[in-house]
């Protein structure tokens, strides 16, 4: 079942600024979905529309099977906004209790969950300290704990690892993987491509308010898969003619079928050319991202 199913989302601000142009996205239960794009691409706008923080100019679709904008559905969604600010006068425990109560979580559950989440996110010992004394990374962890207070079926995190140290990032990745194992859907909005690549099952790349690519990383990079063959010494003429790309002492053959390169390797060996390495190569998320951005010029919304 689709946790998020959006069709033709549009947002036009006053002054005819098109922040989103017919965006369609599907996020399935039990998957981690990453939304990436340059600054000003409209990622946060899309997240805010899902969370009813911003009103869309046009939207159709569902959230956990209910129409977008249904308040009751929000009881089952956890949300961490970008650059969130907790009231400085509250302690970590009070923050969780407050936002838990706003999500209609019962008092007993709030107490149990707050204690368990603080421990799970490495904030034990800080629960009774004012959030004004927390570091950025700690506030980010607390934000994630806040988003999990209502035991959500869908978790929407906007830059969750912003300001978190490498150890913390790894812990958050592990946590997200655990949530996926539990069957929850996670929607991640992040600039950190390597982070997304490590945890996301599927991604969408948004540029200038449009989703330009969407799918699994494997499916998006299928056209870029190739074998890079490096030899000792010069590459024979016949290999250069077959190659899709050639450098000083290596050449590339597009495709992901290993049986297709065997005759080439056999011929190289028969000609006593020493093969240093045969490496399957594919684009990483960063390459994919850069390709998507380069194809659409500069980032930002369109007037």
């Amino acid at each position: 079942m689709a946790a998020i199913q959006l069709q033709g989302v549009e947002k036009v601000y006053r002054g005819k600024v098109h922040a989103l142009r017919r965006v369609s996205i599907d996020v399935m239960d039990g998957e981690i979905f990453g939304l990436l794009g340059p600054n000003g691409a409209g990622k946060s706008t899309l997240v805010k529309i899902i969370m009813t923080v911003i009103h869309a100019s046009n939207v159709s679709g569902t959230l956990l099977g209910k129409p977008i904008g249904d308040r009751k559905t929000l009881e089952s969604i956890g949300y961490l906004p970008e650059h969130h600010r907790f009231p400085y006068y509250l302690t970590g425990k009070q923050v969780l209790d407050h936002y838990g109560a706003l999500c209609k979580v019962g008092r007993k559950d709030r107490i149990t969950r707050a204690s368990s989440l603080l421990s799970r996110l490495g904030l034990s010992g800080w629960e009774n300290k004012k959030v004004g004394t927390y570091s950025k990374g700690m506030l980010q962890r607390l934000g994630i704990a806040q988003a999990l207070m209502n035991d959500p079926k869908l978790l929407i995190l906007d830059e969750p690892t912003d300001g978190v140290d490498p150890v913390g990032r790894r812990e958050i990745r592990d946590l997200l993987a655990e949530l996926r194992e539990e069957g929850r859907a996670v929607f991640l909005n992040s600039h950190l491509l390597s982070e997304l690549e490590m945890v996301c099952d599927r991604v969408a790349i948004m540029v200038k308010g449009k989703v330009t690519m969407q799918g699994t990383i494997d499916s998006l990079t299928v056209d870029s898969r190739r074998y890079e063959i490096t030899t000792l010494g010069s590459i024979p003429e016949w290999a250069i003619e077959l190659a899709d790309d050639v450098s000083e002492n290596s050449f590339t053959l597009l495709g992901d079928d290993p049986s297709k390169i065997q005759p080439i390797l056999d011929r190289l060996r028969s000609e006593n050319i020493i093969i240093v390495s045969v490496q399957p190569v594919r684009e990483n998320l960063e390459d994919l991202f850069m390709r998507a951005v380069d194809n659409t010029d500069a980032p930002g919304a369109i007037r």
């Binding site: 969370m51 923080v53 009881e75 906004p81 600010r85 706003l102």
Partner: peptide, 11 residues
């Protein structure tokens, strides 16, 4: 900003 999103995204 940063504070209101936390509250109005609740049910």
């Amino acid at each position: 900003s940063g504070s209101i999103e936390l509250t109005i995204s609740k049910p």
